[in-house]
Write a protein that binds this DNA or RNA. Structure first.
Length: 209
DNA sequence: AAGTCACA
DNA sequence: CGGC
């Protein structure tokens, strides 16, 4: 891992661990993601109903993956929507990280891999497609810095913005598990980790109790 | 609204 | 905001 030091609780259940992963750990993760994307290619998810494409590209690893399409909407499923193959397994280093810091007895079932090109965004939303809200959502940032926005349990609650940098870990757990959050912008050229630019976000989730 | 946009 |  890396520095066990800094740990900021923004509000109950929201834990920010800036710089938790050192450069070597980040490079190792990028290599693992590269292998995952070879087997489970990135695809463009679309909004339920409208079919409007999102700006991020997406894939998953783990027994379950989060997917969305025009007809069936948001859900978890065991196979890639394009290749129909099972998702690749979650890398051991990610399972280790979860076991060390998630504070939850069971392993994650899903690791959503979101790739943000420098123009991509993610609207304010809640992660609420899981059946187990007692498990936290653990988020890892790799590559270019983003402007992350986090609010409360209501869409209209006041939000705060913070920059998430490569190697930062953010945990939504406890009272913060269902907080609205999103990505307002990517800052191009702020990291040398991904040679082609952009940002990768990994979110580890427990889906079922 | 896991969407976009305008405006202060 | 407004199309679903």
């Amino acid at each position: 891992m890396a520095s066990a030091g800094k740990e900021l609780s923004l509000s109950p259940g929201l834990l920010y661990r800036p710089g938790l992963l050192d450069r070597a750990a980040q490079e190792n993760l990028v290599e693992q993601i590269r292998a995952i994307v070879e087997r489970a290619p990135l695809y463009v998810p679309v909004m339920p109903g409208s079919g409007r494409p999102m700006s991020v590209r997406m894939t998953n690893c783990g027994p379950l993956g989060w997917v969305t399409d025009k007809e069936r909407g948001y859900r978890y499923q065991p196979t890639h929507p394009v290749t129909r193959e099972p998702w690749p397994p979650i890398p051991a280093v990610l399972l280790d990280l979860w076991r060390e810091i998630a504070g939850y007895g069971k392993d994650p079932e899903a690791c959503l891999v979101n790739f943000y090109a420098d123009e991509a965004k993610m609207g304010l939303h809640q992660d609420r497609d899981e059946t187990d809200f007692s498990a936290p959502v653990l988020s890892i940032s790799l590559g270019n810095t983003c402007l992350f926005r986090i609010g409360g349990l209501l869409r209209t609650d006041r939000t705060r913005s913070l920059k998430l940098e490569s190697g930062d870990v953010f945990i939504l757990g406890g009272e913060g598990r269902l907080c609205f959050h999103g990505v307002d912008r990517i800052y191009p050229g702020t990291s040398t980790l991904l040679k082609a630019g952009g940002r990768i976000n990994l979110t580890l989730r427990r889906v079922n109790p």
